[in-house]
Structures are given as C-alpha cells and as structure tokens.
C-alpha cells in the first residue's frame, strides 16, 4: 500500500533517518559478487584469447556497408511491424470486447490461429503466397471484373512477406495485451464518458486507452525487444535483414562465428537502446511502479542497509487513480459500488 506522500520536507527527513539507521553488514553478498566476477572474467578471457575466434574479422565487418544495410532493414522491419501490430492489436482487442458475437468470434479466431501456428511457418507461407494465389487483384469478387491486378511474385517480395508475417503475428499478441489493458480500466470511466455524450471511439481514445497504457506499456516493451530479435527469422525468406546478410557473408567466407558475433553485437546495441527507452516510457506512464535502473539496484543492494532509493518521481505518482476514494461511510450499502 502506498501512503500519501508527506509534504515537501521528505527528502531531508529521509536522509536524516538514513544516518541513524545502518543495516547489518552482508558478507554473503560480497562473496557472491566476487564469485560471479571471477566466473565472468574467466569466461571472457577464454573467449577473447581463443585463436579460433577471429576478432580482426569481427572488427572488419562490424561497420561493413552490407552489414549496416542489413541493420537498417532490421530496424525498419521492427518499427513497421510493431506499429502495424499495435494497430491490429487495438482493433482486434476492441472487437474482442464488443457486444457483437460476430466480431468477438472473428477476433478470437484470429488470435487463436496466429498465436497457435509458428511464426516461421507463417513467414514461409506469406513468401510463397504465389503458389496459392498467383494473382492479386482489386475488383468485384467471384470472378467479376478486376480494377487492378498484380502478379503475386512481384508484389510479395521478401521484405513485404516479412512485414506481413511479422505484423500479423504481432497483432495477435498485442491484441491480448491491449485487451488486458482495456479491461483494467474501471467501467465507470466509460459511463462517465458516455454520460457526457462521448462516442465509443472518443471514449476509447480519450478515456480508456490513456489509462490502459499503464498496464499495456511493460509487456509492450517486452514485445518490442523480442521483435528486434524475432526479425532474424526472416532470413529464411531472404528478408535482407541483419541476420540474412550476415549469413550471406559467412556462407561466402566461412567466418561463421565472427559474423554471428558481429550480428549479436548489433542486436545487443538495439535491444539495449530499446530497454533504455522502455524504462523512460514506463517511468513516464507510471513513475511509482517502474523499477530503478539496473546499476542503481546493484549499488543499492551492495550498500549495507539501504535498499535502492525510490525514484523521486514516485512522489508524483499522484497521477494514478487512488483506490482509497472508496471509503465506505454507510456501512453495508456503499460496500456495493454503483458499477456492476
């Protein structure tokens, strides 16, 4: 339970107390740290001095033009499919929560199918769409006249198939995340919006989704980071991403490990940036709940008797709805709220 922050002077007061209260020394922690550090150094050393690992090759390819192009494709694939995935996710989540059984079933079937089959299969399927539909056209259905039509093979390039596969799959996962977020918002909020004459769409965008963000953002961050690496699957359909180009390179020069390291370094760079961004965003949407950064946690745990300090922003947690407003005065009757 959070207590309402006492006014102003908190900071100084806390520090005074900290001077008085000192924790017990924790030798166990120091031993664990030393052991872990030793293991890490030893492992790194065996890798670094390993003559089979060609660091010069790694260095040569790390900023190679081909690799950088692949990196750019990976970034594009991630961003575009994540954005499309969000849009699909919101639409499907809303369908799933609608009154219409048709919409609910459609949405359910979508999530069921695309979460239930391997992404790898889906990617290969989209890439080979031409086998099923040699021609894609817009016009009257059932052999009616066509307005425009394309050869599937020219339309569905590796990149397009990758985007289709990734975003449609991502949409299925996002829809569940968004649904949970929407359901976390008090139904009274929708009624308040409705009583002002707001349309369902307005209620969704101005009232429900902004509040759902608090629940949506953390798993969304995971999805995004996972997407950065999942894009590597598109190497099976010649997606031209970072993994594909690395593969092409090592198939030519047999420097398998070196090029995998090159790719991994880039993936680590991307995921690190994403984690930092995730943190910043989480903090903005829910300052109280976001854990402090890793280095602060580590340092905090090592200092005797001091847990990691709550970020100062936590005091501003005020933006979040408080449950404490539900104080009952009229014994039995107010215990049962007026929303059902």
């Amino acid at each position: 339970m959070r207590h309402p922050a006492p006014p102003a002077a908190t900071g100084a007061y806390e520090d005074d107390l900290a001077l008085l209260v000192t924790g017990r020394p924790r030798p166990g922690r120091w031993i664990a740290v030393l052991a872990a550090a030793f293991a890490a150094v030893w492992l790194a050393w065996t890798v670094i001095v390993n003559p089979n690992l060609h660091w010069d090759i790694v260095a040569k390819y790390q900023f190679d033009g081909v690799i950088l192009e692949g990196l750019w494709v990976t970034v594009q694939l991630t961003l575009i499919s994540q954005v499309v995935g969000i849009v699909i996710g919101v639409v499907v989540a809303v369908m799933q929560l609608s009154d219409s059984p048709v919409l609910r079933t459609t949405a359910g079937a979508y999530t069921w199918f695309f979460r239930g089959t391997p992404l790898l299969v889906q990617l290969i399927f989209w890439f080979n769409l031409a086998l099923l539909f040699p021609e894609i056209s817009i016009g009257i259905p059932f052999d009616g006249p066509k307005l425009v039509s394309w050869q599937s093979n020219t339309l569905i390039t590796g990149f397009v198939a990758a985007l289709l596969g990734l975003s449609i799959n991502e949409g299925a996962y996002m829809s569940e995340i968004v649904r949970a977020g929407i359901q976390s918002v008090d139904p009274g909020q929708r009624e308040a919006g409705a009583s002002l004459g707001m349309s369902n769409l307005r209620i969704l965008t101005r009232v429900v989704l902004p509040q759902a963000m608090r629940v949506i953002i953390p798993p969304f961050g995971n999805q995004f980071i996972s997407m950065l690496k999942t894009t590597s699957l598109v190497s099976v359909i010649a997606g031209a991403d970072l993994m594909t180009v690395s593969q092409h390179l090592y198939l030519a020069n047999f420097e398998v490990i070196a090029l995998l390291i090159v790719a991994s370094i880039w993936y680590l760079v991307l995921t690190t940036i994403a984690s930092i961004a995730q943190h910043a965003v989480e903090r903005r949407f829910n300052p109280a709940a976001a854990p402090p950064p890793l280095y602060r946690r580590v340092l905090g745990n090592l200092r005797p008797g001091r847990g990691p300090k709550k970020p100062a922003a936590a005091k501003q947690a005020a933006r979040q709805p408080e449950k404490s407003v539900e104080k009952s005065t009229k014994s039995a009757k107010s215990a049962k709220g007026e929303t059902r």
Binding site: Q189, E191, A192, G337, E338
Partner: peptide, 8 residues
C-alpha cells in the same frame, strides 16, 4: 456518480 469517475 457515487464514485465520482473523474478522468484520473
């Protein structure tokens, strides 16, 4: 409303 339902 009983529980206000202000937009938090």
């Amino acid at each position: 409303f009983q529980r206000f339902h202000l937009f938090p």
